[in-house]
């Protein structure tokens, strides 16, 4: 099986979108492109579960084939890591189920196998999860209400990088914030293998009440394919140079 690269968007927000395209629709589009969307909804300290309009958080992840979780800021580090890893396993599991159906037919999936066989398949899932390359684009809501949560967000992203870089597979991270000043999203960190020290901290941007989650997601999707095609071009170019050199 071709291991390739898993791609994820990790959306961290504390509220509902209120501007532009429907984020749930964009998430469905992402899934079609093979990009899983995970969403973490952050609650304020005095907020109870279910009080806020965080149902959208679940809807986006469901539609985007990812994982969602609603937490208080204090639990963020553990959650960011858990959500990312779970989504990886889920995607790999999905790939494997597809293969199983092809091999065994009759819509047979991992869950239908006897426990013994299931264990063997799971070892393969774990093995791929350990070695597969991963690209995570982190999309952080920096609307006014997120202000006091941003330091925690930053810390948990560094923590995520520690976890993922303990794997054998390669990682690429990038961080974008929304809403941006001019465009719908703003780059904070270009693709990098490690988030040891975040060069740029989240800038305090005092915006109005708009949360354009849909447009932000849409633009983030473009950043994957852009990068890929650029890389391809660069790759081809390199090869060309080498060939002419030899």
């Amino acid at each position: 099986m071709n291991k390739g690269t898993l791609r994820q968007i990790l959306l961290i927000t504390d509220g509902c979108s209120n501007h532009g395209e429907d984020p749930v629709a964009i998430a469905a589009l992402a899934r079609e492109k093979g990009i899983a969307i995970n969403v973490i909804g952050i609650l304020s300290q005095n907020e109870a579960y279910g009080e806020h309009g965080l149902k959208e958080v679940e809807d986006i992840a469901m539609s985007g084939g990812g994982v969602s979780q609603i937490v208080y800021a204090t639990q963020l580090a553990q959650t960011v890591k858990m959500v990312t890893q779970k989504a990886m396993t889920q995607t790999i599991h999905g790939m494997i189920n597809k293969e199983l159906t092809q091999i065994l037919g009759d819509e047979q999936q991992m869950e239908d196998l006897p426990p013994e066989k299931r264990g063997q398949v799971m070892e393969v899932v774990d093995e791929i999860g350990e070695t597969v390359n991963l690209e995570v684009l982190i999309l952080v809501d920096i609307s006014a209400s997120m202000d006091d949560k941003l330091p925690t967000v930053q810390e948990s992203l560094i923590d995520l990088s520690i976890s993922l870089n303990s794997r054998t597979g390669n990682n690429q991270f990038s961080i974008y914030a929304f809403p941006g000043k001019k465009q719908s999203i703003e780059k904070l960190q270009d693709w990098t293998p490690q988030l040891d020290t975040l060069a740029k901290t989240f800038k305090k941007i005092s915006t109005g009440g708009i949360t354009p989650t849909g447009p932000a997601l849409k633009e983030a999707l473009g950043l994957f394919s852009d990068k890929r095609s650029k890389r391809k071009l660069l790759g081809d170019y390199d090869e060309y140079v080498e060939e002419s050199g030899s």
């Binding site: 264990g119 799971m122 774990d126």
Partner: peptide
């Protein structure tokens, strides 16, 4: 199912 299967693998 996934995590429980993983755990069983470890136990075995």
């Amino acid at each position: 199912t996934l995590s429980i299967t993983s755990e069983v693998n470890v136990l075995k």
